[in-house]
């Protein structure tokens, strides 16, 4: 499937850009000292987005209670993009929004400390009624809202006055590819004229513990909060957009890489060191300039990874070079997206 890529923006701990160009470096901000201490023995890091509360597009104080840091970043990014690219009613009324979220557990300190404190006292509860009461005191009434997963989607709609079709995908980091695929379906059947696709990742204890277990390797491993979004429109051969995406059906081996003659391969996702070696060996055979892992560079960006990889590929397209973006999910499925001139 083909789609035209008309805008891209991303934000991770060191970079913020609404135009898809890599921005200037900012200092890396880690999570609280308490969190750091708990993971010292794992030799890992959290990278958080540094939010400027004085940013003109920072959310209203009344919304902050149920906003996660990556959602705030997504909100600011989407507002900046809407202004820069002048989306207007063609997006807010006839567009669609596809949001991927690779993790849904909210701020563990805020939500789970209350619950775990309550659980800690459960054994002292004399009867079921007191246990329910105790348990109730630990459960925030906002918990359904915070964990009902579609928070980013709803806040983006609210802040952009977006009225169109929208959904949220939950899976591993590959959820963004699923969002991208459905966006292409919607463009193809005319269910929307523009499709904003993107996602966020929130580095927290839960995602970290889960991911460390997944790759069984904590050496130098980092979890990074990030967000990225890109706009797609139906593909027309005569379009003047910066790039077109060719979404290749997903595959379960790297064999079909040889069908695509490109200059660069940018990849992300859960590659084990052995798979990483195999990939580099194949790329050597295929004469690619380089296979570059964004994951190794920044740590796990979850659902924000695809947008970051596309932004890098688009940068190289400006320099006249083509690229493949390759994502691998936790279940050994590869997704190939070819970035080419529109």
């Amino acid at each position: 499937m083909l789609a035209t890529l008309t805008a891209i923006g991303f934000w991770e701990s060191e970079q913020f850009s609404a135009s898809g160009q890599l921005g200037p470096s900012a200092s890396l901000q880690t999570n609280s000292a308490r969190v750091q201490r708990q993971f010292e023995h794992l030799n890992a890091a959290f990278r958080q987005i540094q939010l400027d509360q004085n940013h003109p597009k920072y959310p209203k104080p009344s919304d902050l209670k149920i906003l996660r840091s990556d959602t705030i970043a997504a909100l600011i990014l989407c507002q900046e993009m809407a202004e820069l690219y002048q989306w207007g009613p063609s997006f807010t009324e006839n567009g669609a929004l596809f949001v991927a979220n690779s993790n849904f557990i909210d701020d563990d300190v805020l939500d789970f400390e209350g619950i775990s404190l309550a659980i800690g006292q459960l054994q002292n509860a004399p009867d079921q009624a007191s246990e329910n009461k105790l348990f109730g005191s630990g459960v925030s009434p906002l918990l359904p809202l915070r964990t009902l997963t579609n928070g980013a989607q709803s806040f983006i709609a609210q802040y952009l006055s977006f009225f169109g079709s929208s959904t949220t995908y939950g899976s591993t980091g590959i959820a963004t590819v699923q969002a991208l695929h459905d966006a292409c379906n919607f463009l193809k059947i005319g269910a929307c004229q523009k499709a904003l696709v993107g996602g966020g990742h929130f580095a927290n204890l839960f995602s970290f513990v889960n991911n460390c277990l997944l790759i069984s390797d904590t050496e130098g491993y980092a979890e990074a909060s990030a967000t990225s979004f890109f706009m797609l429109e139906p593909y027309h051969p005569e379009t003047k957009a910066p790039a077109a995406l060719h979404i290749v059906e997903h595959i379960d081996s790297l064999e079909s890489l040889s069908q695509h003659q490109v200059d660069w391969l940018f990849y992300g996702g859960a590659f084990t060191p052995a798979q990483d070696q195999e990939l580099h060996k194949r790329c050597g055979q295929l004469d690619y300039k380089e296979a570059f892992s964004w994951f190794t560079h920044t740590g796990n960006l979850g659902a924000a990874e695809l947008g970051m990889l596309l932004a890098v590929a688009v940068n190289w397209l400006h320099a006249g070079q083509t690229a493949i973006v390759l994502l691998k999910d936790a279940y050994d499925i590869f997704e190939i997206i070819k970035v080419q001139k529109a």
Binding site: N101, F104, L148, T149, N150, Q153, T167, T168, Y169, G170, S171, A175, Q178, H181, D182, C184, N185, F186, K188, I189, A191, E249, H250, I333
Partner: peptide, 26 residues
């Protein structure tokens, strides 16, 4: 071929049906 998880609270499975239909229609 693949599995999608749509997570929009009370409209999740309604959307799953809609998006599944879109996949067929496309």
């Amino acid at each position: 071929a693949f599995c999608r998880n749509l997570m929009t609270a009370c409209s999740s499975s309604t959307q799953a049906i809609a998006f599944g239909a879109a996949h067929i229609m496309a």
